[in-house]
Design a protein around this nucleic acid. Structure first.
Length: 172
DNA sequence: TCAGTGATTAGG
DNA sequence: CTAATCACTGAG
């Protein structure tokens, strides 16, 4: 009877430009420390695609931080920015191709730094699987949504081509 | 508009 | 080792 399913690893082992627009409208679920489950619809994401993407952390190659992006899709890539905010990303594509989707917003928590704070997740989640429904996972509840797109946020430093490309996807 | 804050990275 | 950078946020 249940109208919900949990995308398996194959959902994430696709090009980031196919995975990213499929995420708004799905639900980010998290078992909080008190045992309750937080469920929020994903509202906004961005795609970061390969070493050629000058706004992607992997543009400077494989390092300790970006190593996870080179692994098979479905892993979590966490990183700290400005010394204060943990960013939640989902690795996509097959092994050897560095891609990830940044989760920028969920219902009620608009902003990548705000949602990780609400969910209580940090660098200790680096490398965990998003398709295993234990601590944190994504559910498809059959919601049909309309997706808008725009340039990515906060990458003014990048070359114009990469700065302006419309790889941000959000709920209309 | 602008400072806070610390991991990560490149470079000496 | 040092210094620069940064996929952000909230206060003023």
């Amino acid at each position: 009877m249940t109208d919900r399913s949990i995308p398996g690893s194959s959902f994430y082992v696709r090009d980031v430009l196919d995975v990213a627009p499929d995420l708004p409208g799905k639900f980010l679920c998290r078992t909080l420390p008190d045992g309750s489950v937080s469920v929020n619809m994903i509202t906004e994401v961005e795609a970061y695609r390969g070493e050629e993407d000058k706004a992607c952390h992997a543009s400077r190659g494989r390092t300790g931080r970006t190593d996870i992006m080179y692994q098979q899709g479905g892993k979590i890539y966490m990183y700290l920015i400005y010394g204060m905010y943990w960013m939640l990303n989902i690795v996509t594509a097959t092994e050897g191709i560095p891609q990830a989707v940044l989760i920028r917003g969920i219902e009620g928590f608009d902003g990548p730094g705000k949602l990780t704070k609400h969910l209580g997740i940090d660098g200790s989640f680096y490398g965990k699987n998003i398709y295993v429904p234990e601590e944190i996972w994504i559910e498809d509840r059959g919601r049909k949504v309309r997706i808008g797109r725009s340039a990515r946020i906060g990458i003014e430093y990048a070359d114009p081509y990469w700065r302006d490309i419309e790889w941000r996807y959000y709920l209309k």
